[in-house]
Amino acid sequence: MIRKLGAMVIDGVWRLGFATRFLFLLLRYSGQSFLRLHLTLREIYFSGVLSLLIILVSGLFVGLVLGLQGYETLQRYGSSEALGVLVALSLTRELGPVVAGLLFASRAGSAVTAEIGLMKTTEQLKAMDMMAVNPIARVAAPRFWGGVISMPILAALFSAMGILGGWLIGVAFIGVDDGAFWSQMQAAVDIRYDIINGVIKSFVFGVAVSLIAVFEGYDCVPTAEGVSRAITRTVVSSALAILALDFVLTSFMFRG
């Protein structure tokens, strides 16, 4: 039992070490893949544009719910005009980056892991290596950067849709004053403190999710079962990483 636990810990540390080494290689070969921008653009399309629909729809729904719940609570204290502030702050600071990150991991991260894992299983990566083309530069780096670039944009769109959802419920449906909704929001939301910090969060989540997705695919056991395990691990580790990093970042960023 204790031995098993020890083995698990050692295995975990090993993998963390491998992942770090992998990140170094990834960064080292990124220059090459940036020179050929179309590779990265293609991955931005695949992971970013194709996740767009789910991000927009989920953002809208989260905003609708925030509008309902927020109004419910705020009107008890007679400050329902602050609905705009509440919706905007919760989205830009927390929900935007976190929920968009979770969705991105399960939509795009898993797809990246599956694709790279399958390429490994069918010896495509080895064949590429044999043709003197570095698979980290040609396959992994563009997917990594595609994710890193898409993530903040997706999170911002998520927040924008959420605010729209809050407005729909609060202003168009319930009848909160339109002017108060927007002006209070403008007054209370600080560019640097709220928006930039939110963007930093989503960027960090983008790096984490993309690294996990690319690494798990690259590192998977080259069998059908190995690939499916790698996909599961991508989704689970990404979720844990996002929530843990969110806690750490929040405690540094928003200390009153």
Binding site: L118, T122, E123, Q124, K126, M128, M130
Partner: peptide, 11 residues
């Protein structure tokens, strides 16, 4: 090198 199972790029 011709790989035993071809190893064509499927995409």
């Amino acid at each position: 090198m011709l790989f035993q199972f071809g190893a064509l790029f499927t995409d």
